[in-house]
Design a protein around this nucleic acid. Structure first.
Lengths: 160, 160
DNA sequence: TATTGTTATACTCTATAACTATA
DNA sequence: TATAGTTATAGAGTATAACAATA
């Protein structure tokens, strides 16, 4: 048990961050929380050869909805031109396929292959451990509040 | 009042994100929340000619603690080499100064100028509005829980 | 003419290694 | 020799414009 010590000894860095007021600003906190969290996510994804964006893309490709690249890009807030490289890589590994939409032959519908579904399911299991690592000691009720709040921030109702 | 409509009509994007399970993953939510939040922060900072990192750097330079570049970089999780450009810009605008540390002449202590303090105070006021924009409708108690959780995620106790 | 996917390009940020001056 | 700040450089990610195929 080193908890006492941890609570008492504040490093110069922590003290000055507090004094600056940054630790009370949601922008600073979220930016830093994202750094910490995504580092853990990256660790979990490494063994599957996936990165944040390719994992998210693959996840969406595994749903019943056949999304076009345009829709995929909008859903993930990734530029359509950026998605091209992500899909090239996933398709090169036979995890997804681009299917020409018969209704509009300009569009490509993205679907996961069986191999893609299998890999995604494994990766998803690993990724879910991150919440445990970060919020494991927080009571379930508060945890739901926090996840709900993140969802609310991530998907805000449109501003006037 | 369009709230009813907003709650009912789920776009294809939202539906497929839910189906994929991504909206239950803390990594995805935080990454997206960070995108949304920092966009608002950038908006607030624009009129002051500051960016996220230069604002955070300036904020720390305004404290009583005379931090060296090394300490500043560690506090902000920014690479020391990256900090050079940030400080060059701030110093060029006479918002901070680099002072050679007499005790160790290799180190530079960073301090805000009066102009820097003034600008930072104004910018901080604007930046704090972002929390209101994002969490304004959430009751104060839950808000404290959320900010506390973000602080906890952003500054995790060291892993074994 | 407008849109989808694509390519090319520039810009920012990140990460690394090498250099200098001090220790 | 080791460290603080700096410089140079390569690598990701983001954003923009232009192009071919299709509508």
């Amino acid at each position: 048990m080193i908890q006492e010590g941890q609570r008492e000894e504040l490093s110069t860095e922590t003290r000055s961050l507090r004094a600056s007021g940054l630790t009370d600003e949601i922008g600073f906190l979220i930016a830093r929380a994202k750094l910490v969290t995504l580092e853990l996510v990256d660790e979990q994804l490494e063994e599957f050869g996936l990165k944040r964006q390719s994992y998210a893309t693959l996840s969406l490709a595994c749903t019943e909805y056949g999304l076009t690249q345009r829709e995929l890009a909008a859903s993930l807030k990734v530029d359509p031109s950026r998605l091209v490289a992500i899909l090239d890589e996933l398709q090169g590994r036979n995890l997804v396929v681009r299917e020409v939409d018969p209704a509009d032959r300009r569009s490509r519908t993205i679907r996961a292959t069986d191999a893609g579904r299998q890999l995604c399911a494994q990766a998803a299991e690993s990724v879910r451990r991150v919440e445990e690592l970060l919020l494991g000691e927080i009571p379930a009720g508060e945890r739901a509040t926090i996840m709900g709040a993140l969802r609310r921030i991530a998907f805000p109702s449109p501003r006037p």
